[in-house]
Amino acid sequence: MNILKAIPKDHIRLTEITKKSKAYWGYSEEQMEKWNNNLTITIDYIETNPVFNLVDENQIVGYYSYFKLQDNQVKLDNLFILPEYIGKGFGSFLMNDFVERMRNEKCQKIILDSEPNAEKFYQKIGFTKIGEFETSIKNRFMPIMEMKL
């Protein structure tokens, strides 16, 4: 496994990974269609934000992206892995790379909005829930989480 900086032409593959990973949690096709724009990774997004691919056997199988909130704070914007790689340590591998990258950049705090089904994953890595907000799905709440470095 390697982690490599994404290039603009990766946008199609990253969008595919994002949509398949989100659908893994059992959301309806109708809901997935409502989220289509939010789940699409564009060339501009890759050119504007740090995006890193997880490559296994010359295939992109996951990625993460982030942006700075302040000089010492970042927001993890995306972390997605193909469904067949979920639960096999690939997510932890990606997160460890991300956290180490943030430490090297002297970041003091990471914030993220967690997929509700992934909250326990982030807690295992060391994130704590600091709040939540209701999503477009009634009675579905997105945990807001942070990790202090």
Rank of each mutant, 00 (worst) to 15 (best):
D97S: 09
V74H: 02
K75Y: 05
M102G: 09
E100D: 13
S65W: 00
K88W: 00
E100I: 11
S92N: 10
F67S: 12
E84W: 06
F90Q: 05
N96P: 13
K68V: 07
K68A: 13
G87E: 01
N78G: 09
F90I: 14
E84G: 11
P83S: 02
F98G: 09
D71M: 08
M102C: 15
L79P: 08
I81E: 00
S65G: 14
L69Y: 03
M95H: 01
I86A: 01
E84P: 15
F90S: 10
I86S: 04
M95W: 01
F98Q: 04
K68Y: 10
K75C: 12
Y66S: 09
R101I: 09
K75D: 04
R101Y: 03
Q73H: 09
D97L: 07
L94H: 02
R101E: 06
N78I: 11
N96Y: 05
F80T: 12
D77Q: 12
K68W: 04
F93P: 11
Y63K: 03
N78E: 06
N72D: 14
N96R: 14
F80H: 07
M102Y: 02
V99S: 03
Q73W: 01
Q73V: 15
M102S: 09
L69E: 06
I81P: 06
I86G: 03
N78V: 09
G87D: 02
F80N: 08
V74A: 03
D71E: 15
Y85C: 07
K75A: 10
P83C: 05
N96I: 11
G87Y: 00
D77G: 11
E84N: 14
G91N: 03
R103T: 10
L69P: 10
D71V: 14
Y64T: 13
R103A: 05
R103N: 14
L82K: 06
R103L: 11
D77V: 08
G91S: 05
S65F: 01
M95P: 12
G89Y: 02
M95N: 07
V74G: 03
Q73G: 03
M102E: 04
V61D: 01
L79A: 07
N96T: 14
G62R: 04
K75L: 08
D77C: 07
V74L: 01
V74P: 12
V99A: 00
Y64P: 15
K68F: 13
R103F: 00
R103E: 09
G87T: 11
Q73Y: 02
E100G: 06
M102N: 08
Y64W: 02
D77K: 11
M102K: 07
V74R: 00
F67M: 10
S65Y: 01
I81F: 03
L79S: 05
F93W: 01
E100Q: 13
Y66M: 08
E84H: 10
K75R: 11
G89H: 04
L79F: 01
N72T: 15
Q70Y: 07
G62L: 02
F67G: 14
Q73S: 13
G62W: 00
N72C: 08
L82R: 03
L76V: 10
M102W: 01
S92Q: 08
Y63W: 02
L76T: 14
G89A: 04
G91C: 04
P83V: 10
D71F: 06
Y63T: 11
S65V: 08
L69A: 03
Y64E: 02
V99H: 00
E84M: 11
I81N: 04
L69K: 13
L69M: 10
I81T: 15
L76Y: 01
G91V: 10
R101K: 15
R101N: 15
D71G: 12
